[in-house]
Every structure is written in C-alpha cells, then in structure tokens.
Design a protein around this nucleic acid. Structure first.
Length: 817
DNA sequence: CGCTGGATTCAG
DNA sequence: CATCGCTGAATCCAGCG
C-alpha cells in the first residue's frame, strides 16, 4: 500500500520498480563481465556493500567485483543469497543483523585482486563497534545462539555439527535399510557348510578425503598426497575427526586435539585444517553403498552388510571368482564414481581375517589373508596387539600390567587361554584367543548368518556431553524433555518399557570450566533406570519418569556436564511384519505388551487392546486439557474426562489364569509393613544418598519409605493386596496416603503426584482386565473403592494444585509443538 | 546360583 | 573467537533372594 502511494505511476509499485532496476543492473553486470573474465577469482560470490568503504568506494568495488567474476547485490533482500558483506565499520546493531554473514573490509577485495587469488576472508573480518554496555548486551544475545544448551534449537544444531552423531545416526540408518533388504527375503543367506569369502571394504581416511575434495575455495592450494591434512572445527582444543596419511606420517592420530597435532609438525610444515562438509559425507556414503549393493550384488551375487558410514562387509558364498581382480575392480569403481576417494579391501574366509588383512592393505590397496592351511605368522608379525578388534586402550594396559614382557602380537598369541582370561575376563579373553588365530567367534558370525537379529536395535538413546551448562533444575528438566522428544520423533514406531537417564557429573575437584571450550572435563558417569510397567510412547509418561530419575541421581544442576536419555525394552506400535522396529527379545507374557494392530480398526478392536489404550490415556487426557483450553477447563469437567477413562467401564475381559497368578503372587499387608520397617531401619543406620545434606529436596516419607521408587512399589503392592478383596484398602491407610500426597503437592512435586495417579490407573486397568467373570462381584467393591481413591483423592489433589501443575506442564508443552 | 541394575569398555 | 566429547552392544561385577 505504501509502495503504491509513493510510486508516481499508478500500477507500478516500488517493489516492481526496484525489481526492474535490479534486473537491468544484472544484465549490465553480465555484459561487463564478458566472456574472457568468466570464472574470475570472485566467481560464485554474491557481494553486498554496506555504507561507506575505503580504500575503494562502492562504485569501484562494484566494477572490480563484477570484473573478476563475482556478483554484486544492491539490496539485502531475504531471497538473495549474499555470500559476503563489505563494510568498513559496523554499528553493533548492524553487526548483530549480519552475524550470519561473512563481513569483510574492502581491503580484502583489493588484496585478493592484487594477489590474483581469493584470500581467506577471516583475515579481513570486520567487528562491530560500541561501548562496553552495548557489547555486554550483544554478548547476552549471542549467548542465546547455537551453543546455548538451554535454547530450543540446541540439540538439532549440535547434532548437525557433530561427527560422532553422524557416525551413530548413519549406522542406525544403514541398519534400518539393511534390515529391510534382508526381511524382503529373496536374499540367499549363507548356510552352515558354505564357504565364505569376506571382503572388508573401508575408505582411506574418509572424512579427510571428502573434506579435501569438497574444500572451500580458500583451501584450493593444498595437496592431499603432500600436505598433512586434518578435519576439525577449531584451531586449538578441537578434536581431529580425520587425518590423511601424510599427517599420520608425522604421528597425527584421529581424535587428537589440533594443538597436539600442530606440535608434531616439523619446522616449515603447515598443518592444513579443513572444515567439515556433512552433506558430502552423507552423499559419498550413499554412493559407496549404492555401488556395492547394486553392482556387486548383481554381478557377483554378493551380500552386503553395513558396518559404518565408510565401511562395509561384502560376502560371496562359495566364491569361484578371482578375488584379487575383484578387489581391483571394486576399488577402481569407487574411485571413479566418487571422483577421487580410495577404498582399501581385506579379503579372507573369516571376518577377523578380512579385518586384519584390511589393516595391512591400507592405505589404497587390498590384501588376501592366508587360508587356514597356510602359515600366517609373517602376516601377524606386521600387526600390533591394538590391531585386534576388542582390544582398546584400557584392556591393553591391563594386559601390559599382567605381562610387561609381551609386546608383539606373536608374543600375545603365545599366551594360553587362561593367561588371556585373567586380565581380560572370561569372554573377551576367549574371543581374543580365537582372533589371534584368525578364527571367528559365534558372536561376530551372527551378523552374517542371522542379520535380522543383529540389525534389530534393542535400545535407542541420545547423549549430549558438550556445551551442557545449567543453573536451575527447571533447565535440566526442560533439556531432558527435549532429549526424550527428540528420540520419540526420531523413532515414530517404538514403544518403550524402560527409561534410563545418564548424567555426567563434574568431579568435585575438576575446574568449573575445562580446557576444552564448553567441554565436559573430568566427570563421574551416573545412571539410573526405571521400568514403566507397560510399553508407552507417551512423552508425558517418559518425561515425568526422567524428572524423577534426575532427582534420584542427586546431582546439582550446576554440576551437570552431560545428559543421556535411553529407551529400552522396546516394542513396536507396528501394524504387520516387516517393520523397522519389531517385537523384541524376551517379551513379557502380558497381553498388553504384544504389538497392537492398526488402532482405528473398530471391528478388530479387542477388549485387550481397548484396555491397553486406556492404560496410557489418563495422562494424555490431562495433556489435551492443558494444551487446548487449560484456563476455562472446569474442575468437574476435568474429572469427568478422567472418569470416562476409568477401568470400571472396561472390566469385561476374562482371564482366569492371570487372575489366579496374581492372587498367588500377592503378599500379605503385614509383610509389606515389615518390609517398610526393615527399609526404615536400614535408612536410619545407613544414610541414603537422597537424604544427604546436598539433596535438592527435603525427603517426604510414606510408610517409612522416602525413595520414590520404593513408594511406587509399595503402592502397587498395596493395590495388589486390597483391590481384589471385598473390603478394599483400610481407611486409616488411605488417610496416611492422602497426607503423603498433600505433602508432595505442597512441595511443588506435582510431577510425582502425576506419576502416582498414572501408576494407580495402570494398575487398576490391569486388574480390571485380569478379573475373572466369576470373581467380578467379589472384586468389584475393592476396585471401585480404588477408583474412588484415584478420582476423589489423587486427582482431586492434582486439581487443587492445578496452578503449579500448569506452570510445570507449560514448559513441556512448548516442546511438543 | 541366576537375575538385575549400574558401570566400563569398545568400535566406528 | 572458542567448539560441536555419539551411541548401541557386550561384558563385568556387586548385590539380591
């Protein structure tokens, strides 16, 4: 509207006028650039000039940039992808506005043209100007940037820059894809008496070569075969993700800090530090697998098993081909199609043989391991103990402590099985014993013979141990919520029955800020887990559990340096066979734990499924209320919602056997009391960590228990005992229970209250569906009594504390969007 | 003795 | 400016009934 008024000519707006002007200018630039200078030093750059500049002004800059192949941009429109901004000085406001751009002085253009190549822009970076107060404000504004773990986008942003997350998540992806390939059938798996030829194929310094091939223009001068090259984020305490073989020649190793690597450089040798290029890592890996899966399988009938982003096993059953020739062919194809990445290959009749042969083949070669009949001592002699898979730094040091004289691999092979097992443990000792003899153990053969079992994930988790800094417990809670949400969104099909929280706690004597920027420093790893009883993917249930677990580990928020959330005892919400996440090992026999069918099919919905859905629902109801119209929701309506989910209405399922089992298992109330007293005694003598002076909360006791988990167990036992009797719970016990709940509410621990409500609801649902038709009458009053307690005591107290409850929930809801 | 939960170790 | 120290599995071990 404003544009139309301003423009003199009706129908020709400001926007259109400038669009025309820009287009005209672009055509002029194109012409000025001419044919000869196409591809000049600024090719691919789009430059914007902000304000007054020197030594060249805007006009001169425009002319020169265009002349040398760059594009000139007159306006910072959001759509245009400006790569560089030229300015002499910036107000802080502008600096903030341009913080995601490369802001350089005009001198950068002058010098680049003079030197005939694009100089590193970082050397000409322009900073913002302002007084200290302004700078302080600015600092606060940056603090909320991508390295603030309390920001909403932290996890995503962190992971998109983490090589280790790339490795893990990529492996998960490869496993999923391979699982589908194997489940599709039509794959001829090896049989017990087949002869295998195993090809272990691996890129030579994958990240380094890829980062080199796709390096930014300012690094164009380095050479992969001459210069020591590493991939890293920073310049001092940054991990080296990958280094080329030239760097390895100077003693550089993956995982080393850049500062250490620099120290290894002889005088005059410059260590080239390339930035990551995550997209190309992924694309190159995709291409690698594509080449091997399609071409290799189609031509030679090979099976492909994933190992990692840059590594795989290819297996041919009863192979009659020339393996050396095959290796050359594979290597050549990968090299050509990736335009410069070399892979090495180890070949053997066993996995371990192929693995060891690969060690000898690297870099840029292939090696055939001798057959079992041949002598392998010459091969083993070229390897070192750390080349044996499974022997890492810790176990090697244990070995060294036990046998200081044993240095070489052959000496290691000289040890007996017993001698290996003493320092390494029974299993690892045995595996090592066989590996030293070129033999596979059943464990590692499982991937080849039963891939579906191995490729199936049994736990899923998120771990973040960098940039973790909290001040308040609310921040910890929020962060755990985000972790849980991240996992659930990443695994849309899974249900979990166990959640584990791992906290990295700063060692008491470790400095508040470690050497590494935002690193975790020296820490204790603390973990706690909790069984949920029934598989669920309700964020509310999982989040509440995590809050409770964090309080249990008893770590001050300020000392948290890492957070890990892990879900285990997984099942699938799955529909049919062939799903990525299927039912897993040792499934409990309760009908609830079996995968359900498509939920919206009314004709096939059984009472069992009904009750399962209801089991998880009370919390959901609460959530929906809160999210939709929490303010206007009347208490009565709120209770009605809850009431509609109560088990009395679904007490239709007949399961005599389970009802009997439960009765047999249920214990006497006296025994429960005795247990509680015993625990009380134990607590009086031995100070529980939860009761320590540093405890975040004053402990609240119920029946002599203060640990929330014990209390939950106690409540379950109490229900087990009294719900199936005609009398129901004793009024005095109910009174005590009520008193406990009120205390919980009064101390703002609404999440625990919620957990108890959920726990009782789950238990009652279970009872209701277990009840035999004949005992319904006898059990009705006990169950009804418990329904009453749930509704009129637990939920009532929840309602009375809705304000705190909402405050607590509100934080969570933000992340559910 | 077998089971469970927590800690440690490794690989890539 | 730093900097992006993940994740799943196997194993071990203490404590329990």
């Amino acid at each position: 509207m404003r544009a139309r008024m301003a423009g003199g000519d009706a129908g020709y707006s400001y926007g259109e006028y400038f669009a025309d002007k820009r287009e005209k200018q672009r055509r002029q630039d194109e012409a000025a650039r001419g044919f000869a200078s196409r591809g000049g030093i600024f090719a691919g750059l789009v430059v914007y000039v902000n304000g007054y500049t020197r030594p060249w002004d805007r006009l001169k800059l425009h002319a020169e940039i265009v002349k040398h192949g760059g594009e000139f941009c007159h306006y910072m429109s959001g759509k245009r992808q400006v790569t560089h901004i030229i300015a002499s000085n910036l107000t802080l406001k502008k600096f903030v506005e341009f913080r995601n751009y490369k802001v350089v002085s005009a001198q950068w253009v002058v010098d680049s043209i003079q030197r005939g190549r694009l100089l590193p822009w970082q050397d000409y970076r322009v900073e913002g100007q302002g007084d200290d107060q302004q700078k302080l404000d600015l600092k606060a504004l940056r603090a909320t940037s991508t390295t603030d773990c309390n920001g909403p986008d932290f996890i995503t942003n962190y992971f998109s820059n983490s090589r280790l997350h790339l490795l893990s998540s990529w492996k998960a992806k490869l496993y999923r894809e391979a699982l589908i390939r194997f489940q599709k059938g039509a794959v001829h798996l090896p049989q017990g008496n087949d002869t295998l030829t195993v090809f272990h194929i691996d890129f030579d310094s994958f990240f380094a070569i890829t980062a080199y091939l796709y390096r930014p223009i300012e690094y164009r001068d380095c050479e992969f075969d001459k210069d020591p090259i590493v991939v890293c984020h920073g310049k001092h305490n940054s991990d080296i993700a990958s280094c080329n073989y030239v760097a390895r020649g100077y003693g550089v190793k993956n995982g080393m800090w850049v500062r250490e690597a620099e120290k290894l450089m002889p005088g005059g040798v410059h260590l080239v530090k390339l930035p990551y290029c995550f997209k190309q890592f992924r694309d190159t890996s995709d291409l690698f697998y594509k080449i091997l899966i399609e071409e290799f399988k189609d031509e030679f009938g090979g099976l492909v098993y994933p190992i990692s982003i840059d590594e795989l096993l290819a297996v041919i059953v009863n192979c009659k081909l020339d393996t050396a020739q095959l290796c050359e062919r594979i290597r050549q194809r990968v090299f050509e199609q990736t335009q410069g990445c070399s892979v090495s290959i180890g070949v053997a009749g066993t996995r371990i043989g192929a693995r060891l042969a690969l060690k000898l083949a690297k870099p840029n070669g292939y090696k055939l391991w001798p057959s079992p009949q041949e002598d392998d001592t010459a091969f083993l002699d070229k390897l070192v103990p750390s080349d044996i898979p499974g022997l890492g730094p810790s176990l090697l040091s244990r070995l060294h402590a036990s046998y200081p004289q044993v240095k070489t691999l052959l000496q290691l092979r000289g040890l007996t099985l017993k001698q290996l097992q003493t320092p390494l443990g029974e299993k690892v000792g045995e595996k090592t014993f066989y590996r030293l003899r070129g033999q596979d153990d059943p464990e590692s053969l499982k991937l080849l013979y039963e891939p579906e079992t191995v490729l199936q994930r049994k736990t899923i988790s998120v771990d973040i141990n960098w940039a973790i800094r909290f001040r308040t417990i609310e921040q910890v809670d929020t962060f755990m919520d985000r972790c849980a949400t991240f996992i659930l969104e990443d695994n849309p099909e899974v249900l979990t029955a166990q959640v584990t929280l791992k906290i990295m706690q700063r060692c008491a004597d470790a400095p508040l800020e470690p050497t590494k920027y935002l690193g975790m420093g020296r820490c204790n790893a603390l973990s706690q887990s909790s069984n949920l009883g029934l598989p669920t993917r309700d964020p509310g249930v999982i989040i509440t559990e995590l809050h409770s677990l964090f309080r249990k580990v008893n770590c001050l928020p300020g000392d948290v340096r890492g957070v890990g959330v892990s879900l285990s005892k997984l099942t699938s919400v799955g529909r049919t066979v062939g799903h990525a996440v299927g039912p897993l090992r040792n499934q409990p026999t309760l009908p609830f734990l079996q995968s359900t069918r498509t939920p919206n099919s009314t004709t096939t919905t059984t009472p069992v499924e009904n009750s399962r859905k209801r089991c998880v629902s009370p919390l959901k109801t609460l959530r929906i209320n809160e999210e939709n119209d929490s303010r206007s929701q009347a208490t009565t309506e709120y209770q009605e919602q809850f009431l509609s989910e109560l088990p009395t209405q679904i007490r239709r399922e007949i399961n005599r056997e389970q009802a009997i089992k439960r009765k047999v298992e249920s214990t006497k109330l006296d025994k429960i009391r005795a247990d509680a007293q015993k625990r009380q005694k134990a607590q009086d003598t031995c100070k529980d960590h939860f009761l320590g002076q540093d405890s975040l909360f004053e402990p609240i006791k119920f029946q002599g228990c203060s640990r929330f988990k014990d209390i939950c167990k106690l409540i379950n036992k109490w229900i087990d005992q009294t719900a199936c009797e005609s009398k129901g719970p004793h009024p005095r016990d109910v009174k005590l229970f009520r008193r406990y709940l009120v205390k919980l509410a009064a101390s703002n621990r609404t999440h625990l209250l919620l957990q108890i409500a959920n726990l009782i609801s789950l238990n009652l649902n279970l009872k209701a569906s277990d009840s035999d038709k004949e005992v319904v009458d006898a059990t009705r009053s006990g169950l009804q009594e418990w329904d009453n307690i749930l509704l009129h005591t637990v939920v009532k107290i929840l309602n009375e504390n809705k304000t705190t409850f909402q405050r607590e929930r509100k934080v969570k809801i933000e992340f559910d969007i």
